[in-house]
């Protein structure tokens, strides 16, 4: 079963990425986590995302595109990356989520992927 692991970060942790003093520890935590998942062979794919300042949100209202600087949700925690993992069940997915560095200061959301669309007329 495939799950998406949506990893959020706080502004503080986003800042750690570029802070010469904090960055090594920050990245070491993620490298260890991702390495462990890779070793276990559960990663289908995954990426980190540039910080929220780089986000642009688009909505079309009354036929007009509205482009907004910033992410779609204004909240303290913002999406920082994602993984698609292949594991037998939610319990296993949660066990992996618990090991994500951000789980202890931000949050990890787990959602199953939709199954493939049934072929029409089949």
């Amino acid at each position: 079963m495939q799950f998406m692991m949506l990893l959020t970060e706080t502004a503080t942790e986003f800042a750690h990425r570029d802070d010469p003093e904090k960055a090594p520890a920050y990245w070491a935590g993620w490298t260890a986590f991702i390495g462990a998942m890779a070793q276990a062979g559960v990663i289908v794919r995954g990426d980190g995302l540039q910080p929220p300042y780089s986000a642009t949100t688009l909505r079309i209202r009354d036929g007009k595109p509205l482009v907004q600087d910033g992410p779609f949700a204004d909240s303290k925690e913002q999406l920082g990356g994602y993984f698609i993992i292949e594991v037998p069940d939610l319990d296993t997915a949660l066990a992996w989520a618990a090991r994500a560095p951000s789980a202890s200061y931000a949050a990890v959301e787990i959602r199953p992927l939709l199954p493939p669309m049934p072929s029409l007329g089949g």
Partner: peptide
């Protein structure tokens, strides 16, 4: 949720 979220049975 039990059906779709993949809870371990």
């Amino acid at each position: 949720k039990i059906r779709d979220a993949g809870l371990r049975f």
